[in-house]
Design a protein around this nucleic acid. Structure first.
Length: 283
DNA sequence: CTCCAGGGAGCCT
DNA sequence: AGGCTCCATGGA
């Protein structure tokens, strides 16, 4: 039973949001010539597609709310007013208009960004899907609809078997982090109650989680919109376009950008990231 | 062949 | 604290 969400007063681009590289929890499927996306979580499947200013979606199993997982209640116009501080950002916003930060599940987000280090985006996506296929719990609706395995499941997989995922040295990080999350050393609900600095400090206790991975998890899963992850692309952009904010030191660079863009620095980061990766020819 | 990819840990000073 | 090196693997 297809439901329709009116996007007349809600700036939103489904494609920019799900294909900018921020999330590894969505798959593409084409039905009757229409490009659709689906995600599996909390015992349900959400399938969405966009036709102009209408968002169409099907829910199967438990309800997964598109407003929640796509952050459709974020005040995007106000966010633009806050982050549009220079010409480069204005172009990034114009090109990617409607891109929203997602709200992913904590554990899948954490594991996919742990495996992301020194990897290219298509490969991260493929590995994440392999984990779902091998260790995930299938819904009744078919093997292609697997939930991401919980921390207890991955914690019990031998490390050399995890290496069959071709994640190399990251296998040990995945196993140890899964054990710690399973045992409650880091709890997402607990993290949400902390401020940015405290939550980041706590996340970095996990093996395989440093400044960058922690910032990604804070932004894409825990809703800390001030978080400004610095990867190789963003570093390049800052060095070239925001020279006075640049530093070789991660924390200094990230904090400079947070101070510059304000409470929605995470949005600024994602617009810069996608713009820099797809629309500019940085050296 | 070499170089690099949404980095992090361990070790050095 | 800050800098350097190694860590698997695959794609360009």
């Amino acid at each position: 039973m297809t439901e329709i969400l009116d996007l007349t007063d809600i700036p939103f681009s489904l494609r920019q949001t799900l294909e900018c590289g921020q999330t590894f929890s969505w798959s593409k499927t084409e039905e009757e010539g229409v490009q659709k996306y689906f995600t599996v979580r909390n015992g349900g499947i959400l399938k969405v597609w966009q036709e102009g200013d209408r968002l169409m979606y099907d829910c199967l199993g438990n309800r997964v709310d598109p407003v929640d997982v796509l952050r459709l209640d974020d005040p995007l116009d106000e966010i633009y007013r806050c982050i549009n501080k220079d010409g480069f950002m204005e172009r990034a916003v114009a090109v990617n208009h409607g891109l929203r930060i997602v709200r992913d599940e904590f554990f899948p987000c954490l594991i996919s960004y742990i495996t992301s280090s020194q990897m290219q985006i298509p490969r991260i996506l493929r590995i994440q899907m392999d984990i779902r296929a091998k260790y995930g719990q299938p819904l009744e609706l078919g093997r292609e609809y697997n939930q991401f395995p919980g921390p207890g499941v991955l914690a019990d997989v031998p490390e050399d078997e995890l290496r069959n995922l071709n994640i190399g040295y990251r296998a040990g990080y995945v196993k140890k982090t899964s054990e710690m999350v399973r045992d409650g050393a880091v709890d997402p609900e607990n993290l949400r109650s902390m401020d940015y600095t405290e939550a980041k400090e706590k996340l970095k206790v996990l093996p395989g989680v440093g400044d960058k991975v922690a910032d990604c998890v804070l932004l894409f899963s825990l809703g800390f919109l001030e978080s400004f992850p610095v990867d190789t692309w963003v570093r390049r952009i800052v060095k070239q376009e925001y020279r006075e904010k640049y530093s070789k030191n991660y924390e200094i660079l990230s904090e400079n950008m947070r101070n510059y863009f304000g409470d929605y620095a995470g949005y600024a980061q994602e617009y810069l990231f996608h713009y820099g990766r797809t629309c500019t020819d940085l050296e």
